[in-house]
């Protein structure tokens, strides 16, 4: 059982890092971005490109990679954020300026998703790739076996969630983001530059997606649809957690991750997403607004 929980928390880590961006973009730009999964993949591939140039020489404390990957992770976080910013400026912003409807923005995000995925295939091919091939002996922690790479994913995710909380609750920009997500018009009246808040939303959302991509790539593999496959679990997590709350999305991701791990362990891997959605339905029957959501 402890092993199942550990697997669930590892699976949840990737969902958490992805869903934070999905939730922030949903609340601040007012549309669900179907490209969020593919931003995870672009992040993983940007890091892969940097690693291909710099190599992954060495190994840190039992991890399957050396310092160059840490550098690549940081660069990919920033570059992936800038890529999202470029996409916003050239596509979503144009639609906002024309007062496009929410459905137009959603369809545009579908287009961005296809564009990013196919750009990856064009540049890097279909085949799965790996950051490093070093064999990792699993660690035993409190009765659960976990690889150092997976442990790193959980630790980095936890750190990011804590950092996000401090950012949203302590900094002016974080409070401004919460203000814009609740009432953009009042935020403007308050002197908050909403366009600036939107830029930071993309930087943070896509930056965290890149971290998710690299950690997922280290844990499993890097392939063009790695992010797209996370899209459904991310949406499930956001909805079950309550769409208006980033914290809800994080809790939702944990719930989905653990539900998937239980299914894989006790039923069969093929039923993973079906059971995850069953959990979503059960929670919503009891609490239609989601775990931390507000009643409409």
């Amino acid at each position: 059982m402890i092993q199942v929980l550990a697997d669930g928390v590892v699976a949840a880590s990737f969902i958490v890092l992805g869903v934070v961006g999905l939730s922030m973009i949903y609340n601040i730009l007012n549309f669900p971005s179907f490209a969020q999964g593919d931003h995870i993949a672009t992040g993983a591939y940007i890091a892969l490109g940097i690693v291909a140039l710099a190599g992954t020489a060495g190994s840190i404390a039992g991890l399957s990679f050396g310092w160059p990957l840490i550098g690549a992770l940081i660069c990919a976080t920033i570059l992936n954020g800038l890529l999202a910013l470029l996409i916003d400026r050239s596509i979503y912003r144009q639609l906002r300026l024309r007062n496009a409807s929410r459905i137009s923005l959603i369809m545009a995000s579908f287009g961005v998703a296809l564009m990013l995925r196919n750009l990856i295939v064009l540049l890097a091919g279909h085949d799965p790739q790996y950051y490093a091939f070093a064999i990792q002996p699993a660690l035993s922690i409190g009765g659960a076996r976990i690889t150092p790479n997976d442990l790193l994913a959980v630790i980095v995710t936890t750190m990011m969630v804590v950092a996000l909380h401090l950012f949203l609750s302590r900094t002016t920009l974080g409070k401004s983001m919460r203000a814009v997500s609740e009432n953009p018009s009042l935020a403007r009246v308050n002197g908050i530059d909403v366009d600036r808040v939107i830029r930071w939303t993309w930087l943070i959302g896509a930056g965290l997606a890149a971290i998710a991509g690299v950690l997922l790539g280290l844990s499993v593999q890097v392939n063009p649809s790695m992010g797209f496959e996370l899209l459904l679990p991310m949406f499930a997590a956001m909805i079950v957690g309550g769409v208006t709350s980033v914290y809800g999305a994080v809790l939702g991701a944990l719930l989905i991750g653990v539900a998937e791990a239980i299914t894989v362990h006790y039923i069969a891997p093929e039923y993973r997403q079906a059971v995850a959605f069953l959990v979503v339905i059960l929670v919503l029957l009891a609490r239609p607004q989601g775990i931390l959501g507000e009643k409409a």
């Binding site: 409070k175 919460r178 203000a179 609740e182 009042l186 002197g191 908050i192 208006t244």
Partner: peptide, 28 residues
């Protein structure tokens, strides 16, 4: 003038509805 720059001219505005951030604390 962009709405967010109005406050810099010395004019503050209290809308009729939705004039507080309900999820933020009073101090925030």
């Amino acid at each position: 003038l962009a709405t967010h720059k109005l406050v810099g001219t010395g004019v503050a505005y209290v809308p009729q509805v939705g004039n507080v951030f309900t999820r933020l604390s009073v101090e925030e």
